[in-house]
Design a protein around this nucleic acid. Structure first.
Lengths: 236, 236
DNA sequence: TAGATTATTATGTATGACATAATAAAATTA
DNA sequence: TAATTTTATTATGTCATACATAATAATCTA
């Protein structure tokens, strides 16, 4: 009998979402509806279970999700309290380069280039004399290029990380921090087969000078040249 | 197994991780050590519980985390199977603008500007004639500026979204998709009090022309001018 | 009243049971 | 025999209960 099809239009689309999904939704809605402040505590698990008419198990699984999303933090006796969500903290946890496929790794690498070229305006907006001094300090400790063709990753991170600092954008900084293990992984594992072929046209020192005396536009071009090797590898 | 208990009193301060934390770690390690392919299934919950010597409850909570991280997907009878992790899936879920504080919203807005200025090289690397045509098509449907000072958000998203498409960077696209609700929220809620004061120096049409005949450098400058209004608001 | 001790409380963990849906095996029918 | 329906199996989903643990509140002691 194919009679089922006859009722297709009349029947409501059954939601395939699990019970935990619904509870999660309810809880999020509850949180934002109550306009709870950071630090406020929410009803205890057993109460939530009674209110929503589900088992504590389901409540716990839903709360676990909220905790992963950084919306709440559970304390032993106090119960769960609202926290300021840390978007990138969550991602950092799941940013395990070994389990990412090669295409994704490449794309993440690309995003880094996009960010560092695009951040120029914010650098110039916030940079201070102290920042310049610190950058110069970092550059002065730069290991000689002749040492080994492959640049020193630690130093790279120090310099470029400082740039992210200067943007004064905490979210951006967290984003970079999240991406770091990927770069580390990409450089260490022989994923980048070829050594940089091209000469670095703009050195760190050059970039610092531009940041000190130049313009965002010049910095973008400088950074683009600085990253030329990476681009060349990506576009080959 | 439980020889640790002898040191219980001394180690207490250091070991702040919960049982679920450890199990989660073990499972992730297990997955990457076994080099499991996408689609492979992992041992069932009860087996994992026996192997690791913990209750099924703990196993389930740990598996729930892996599921949130996009590492596995649970099927009713088949068990849990490896999936390709979706980094931004999790973040998208927790990207609820209403619960983000104002500073974070501003920072996310800034990141958008960074991305769109910095993506120029990848646009030129991948853009096709068809892309140009599509962009022109979008621009042609642009509502007149005189209609209302506040630009049409839907159209903005269509144009700028297409640019993200052209980069052919799926991760970047997902990132943008994740940020969309924030822009929507920022624009709709009176968070941006002032209307754009400055004339848009570079129109969408101008950007398309640069993309067709210009260079990445010119495009970056054009985009910078195009976003001038946003920058002005951020820097005021 | 300050400090130490005990009681309370909400989350963390363990166990057992049953429901449910996807799959495999068996039985039936053509 | 092959196709199809029915039944059995299985692993996750949900529920209920009990106890452990750590943080807090209440009480007691000096």
């Amino acid at each position: 009998m194919d009679s089922n099809l006859a009722f297709k239009g009349q029947l409501k689309t059954i939601d395939t979402t699990s019970l935990v999904d619904k509870v999660e939704e309810s809880l999020v809605e509850f949180l934002q509806h109550k306009k709870l402040q950071v630090g406020d505590s929410i009803p205890k698990e057993i109460d939530l279970a009674n209110i929503l008419g589900v088992s504590r198990t389901v409540i716990r699984e839903a709360l676990l999700r909220l905790r992963m999303m950084g919306l709440i933090d559970s304390k032993k006796k106090k119960g769960a309290v609202i926290t300021s969500p840390d978007l990138f903290g969550i991602m950092s946890k799941s940013m395990k380069p070994h389990i990412l496929d090669q295409d994704t790794l490449k794309e993440i690498f690309e995003i880094r280039l996009v960010l560092e070229i695009g951040m120029a305006d914010f650098l110039f907006q916030h940079v201070t004399k102290e920042d310049i001094e610190e950058l110069k300090e970092i550059v002065s400790k730069e290991p000689p290029v002749t040492d080994h063709h492959l640049f020193n990753i630690g130093h790279e991170i120090a310099f470029h990380g400082k740039l992210y600092d200067i943007t004064r954008n905490e979210t951006l900084k967290k984003f970079q921090k999240m991406l770091l293990p990927v770069f580390d992984y990409v450089h260490n594992s022989g994923l980048l087969k070829k050594q940089p072929l091209l000469k670095t046209f703009a050195s760190h020192k050059t970039l610092v000078n531009i940041l000190k005396n130049g313009t965002p536009e010049k910095f973008r071009n400088g950074m683009r040249k600085h990253l030329e090797n990476h681009f060349a590898r990506l576009f080959e």
